[in-house]
Design a protein around this nucleic acid. Structure first.
Length: 339
DNA sequence: AACGTCTGCAACCGCATCGAC
DNA sequence: TGTCGATGCGGTTGCAGACGT
């Protein structure tokens, strides 16, 4: 259904500022209108959106034209439904950024913020809820613990290994890393919380080793023969246990992420300060090396996730793996961290 | 077939931000 | 420095088609 608004004078609450004095059409766009807009922008570019409707012969406001072009007519838009890989990326970035759809969409070539937002609201949200996860915090719905809000990139969350966990656990890798400039994390590194007193004694030991993921075109030929390969979108990712320095990769062009794998026998309670040192060491290496991808560190007690978002390596998740969780201990720790 | 309900998504609205003046 | 218009963004609305009864 299409309607017309006659916008006249200031103070009119309807319509946009850019077209107050124009007769504007509203509602769904007709194919004829689409053709006019495409033809005009293809030839002239959009320039000032407020002048587009007049110049293109449309009875729409500039804002409506802009929206129609960006969300529907742009030639570089990807058609078709959102893939499972894109879905994982959306969930992963949303976990860090919250409802910043435009930022999320930047990591999905050909997708718009509106599309991401609609997909989230109509699909992902339901899936997360069905899995018992709060779509806003990505925490368990049963949890009353919260240390995050949508405007803050730093989130703390936890899960028990006995609880259902999200199927969306793959770290997203940001594909437009070439456009990013490294800067220091704006948020101080979180101290690893001591295990709550009520924590059950650990029944297993574990050991540690380091694996690295590489995304460096210069060394791909070499890595192809020595590392296992996967990919995120069109971006090839190579995993290897060899330190980047072995490949001479610790230069500005080096992009790699470290994953701290639990494979070495240690006692977590005693080892935690050392883990802290280890994590800080690895992270400073990551930053020093121009790390522009995600990292995760795992111990038997905790998983730490750091995502590379908006040119910054951010701690995005801290997951407690043991059960039961001592809620009070976590809350008091979170409060302490907040101060 | 008719009607009601649900769902996905295109489009709109209001607000924030930015730059020009 | 304040004002104003343009732009961008996130929340919300409402329509069209799908689905169920």
């Amino acid at each position: 259904m299409v309607s017309f608004d006659i916008q006249e004078g200031l103070g009119n609450k309807t319509g946009h500022q850019c077209c107050r004095k124009q007769k504007v059409k509203r509602g769904l766009w007709s194919p004829e209108e689409d053709k006019k807009l495409i033809k005009y922008i293809t030839v002239h570019g959009h320039g000032s959106w407020s002048s587009v409707p007049h110049l293109a012969g449309l009875e729409r406001c500039g804002k409506s034209c802009r929206l129609r072009w960006i969300n529907y007519l742009r030639p570089d838009l990807k058609r078709g439904s959102i893939t499972a890989k894109e879905e994982r990326i959306i969930v992963d970035i949303h976990r860090i950024l919250g409802n910043r759809w435009a930022q999320i969409a930047k990591h999905l070539p050909g997708r718009t913020d509106n599309e991401v937002k609609n997909f989230w609201n109509s699909c992902i949200k339901k899936k997360l809820i069905a899995q018992g996860l709060d779509p806003n915090t990505h925490n368990l719905l049963s949890s009353n613990y919260k240390h995050s809000n949508n405007n803050n990139a730093w989130k703390l969350s936890y899960h028990s290994h006995q609880q259902p966990t999200s199927t969306f656990t793959v770290n997203s890798q940001i594909s437009d890393i070439s456009s990013m400039v490294m800067k220091a994390p704006p948020i101080p590194f979180p101290m690893i919380p001591l295990a709550p007193d009520t924590n059950p004694p650990l029944s297993h030991e574990f050991s540690s080793s380091l694996t690295y993921e590489y995304q460096n075109p210069k060394t791909q030929a070499f890595l192809e023969s020595t590392a296992s390969q996967s990919s995120i979108g069109s971006v090839p990712i190579f995993s290897s246990t060899s330190h980047p320095s072995e490949f001479g990769l610790l230069d500005e062009s080096c992009m790699w992420a470290g994953g701290y794998e639990p494979t070495q026998s240690i006692i977590p309670e005693k080892k935690q300060p050392e883990q802290q040192v280890e994590i800080e060491k690895i992270t400073s290496e990551l930053i020093g090396a121009g790390q522009q991808m995600d990292a995760s560190f795992e111990t038997s007690n905790f998983d730490f996730d750091f995502d590379f978002v908006e040119s910054t390596l951010l701690p995005c998740g801290m997951y407690y793996n043991q059960s039961p969780i001592d809620q009070l201990a976590w809350d008091s720790w979170a409060l302490q961290e907040k101060k």
